[in-house]
Amino acid sequence: MPRQQQPARPARRRSYDQFCATARALDAVGDRWTLLIVRELLAGPRRYTDLHADLPGVSTDVLASRLKDMEQGGLAVRRRLPPPAAASVYELTARGRGLLPVLTALAGWGAPALGERRPTDALRAHWFALPLLRSLEGLTEAGVVEVGLPEGTFHLRTGEEAEGRDVYGYGPAEDPDARLVLDEDAALDLARGGCALAELVRGGRARVHGEGALAAALRETGRE
């Protein structure tokens, strides 16, 4: 009589097995690609296909595995969009969004390593959101800033406008309070940590458009 096959046990996620907050954090987000998936989802809910398109180099199997781990770890959830979209999206939980300052700090730490862009380096406009947010940390004026770069457009929220919401997003904003335009060299200098946004505004390398309070506050950063 053939032996009955036992159901496969779910694989146990690797752990450092250390009673340390840093080790516990790395248990949750230390796998390759996880933090970059968080970076993408910080801009709002995304379909699996969109995530795969904006994470060049990740295999479909690894992406699916990481998303499953993030769901199990309470970092992300998957939900079905109402008709007529009829698609599933992934989005961060409050715990997942709590990784924003971690990624912002990590981007600052890694900025000096950017150097020259290699021919194999992929680039997306919204990847500049983290260094730009870091440069806007002292800005208290609330609103939505649309950012135009040669690679494309994204938008971000400042002040109270950002509380409890997606801090940045893909593409143009519906009704931005200000528009910020940077050329390629200015954006790269900002990402590398070579200069702050205030210096770019002051030197005319970042142009601010708009007449409201947020646009005025952005222009004022260049006069400090």
Rank of each mutant, 00 (worst) to 15 (best):
P2W: 04
R3L: 14
Q5E: 15
Q6R: 11
P10E: 09
D17F: 10
D17Q: 15
F19E: 14
V29D: 03
R32Y: 12
W33H: 09
L35S: 00
L35H: 00
V38N: 02
E40Q: 15
E40K: 11
R47F: 01
T49V: 15
D54V: 15
D54H: 12
P56R: 01
V58D: 06
V58Q: 03
T60F: 06
T60N: 01
D61W: 08
L63Y: 02
L63W: 00
S65W: 05
S65Y: 03
K68T: 09
K68D: 09
D69G: 13
D69P: 01
D69L: 11
M70Y: 10
M70N: 07
Q72G: 13
G73S: 11
G74Q: 00
L75N: 06
A76L: 09
V77T: 10
R79I: 08
R80C: 14
L81I: 07
P83R: 14
P84F: 00
A86F: 13
A87M: 09
S88H: 12
Y90I: 01
E91Q: 14
T93E: 01
T93K: 01
A94S: 08
A94G: 15
G96I: 11
R97S: 10
L100K: 04
L100R: 06
L103M: 05
T104R: 15
A105I: 01
L106E: 04
L106W: 11
A107Q: 10
A111I: 08
A113P: 04
R118G: 14
R118C: 12
R118S: 13
D121Y: 06
L123K: 08
A125W: 01
A125I: 00
H126Y: 02
F128L: 13
A129L: 00
R134M: 03
R134P: 06
L136T: 12
T140M: 11
G143A: 03
G148W: 11
L149K: 11
L149M: 04
L149P: 04
E151D: 12
G152V: 09
F154H: 03
H155G: 12
H155W: 06
L156A: 04
R157C: 10
R157W: 05
R157P: 10
A162M: 08
E163T: 14
G164H: 02
Y168H: 11
Y170E: 11
G171T: 07
D175S: 15
P176S: 09
P176T: 10
R179D: 06
L180C: 02
L182E: 04
D183N: 11
D185T: 15
A187R: 06
A187Q: 07
R192Y: 06
G194P: 02
C195F: 03
E199C: 02
V201C: 01
V201H: 03
G204H: 08
R205E: 08
R205W: 03
H209Y: 13
E211Q: 13
G212C: 06
A213W: 00
L218D: 05
L218E: 03
R219E: 03
E220Y: 02
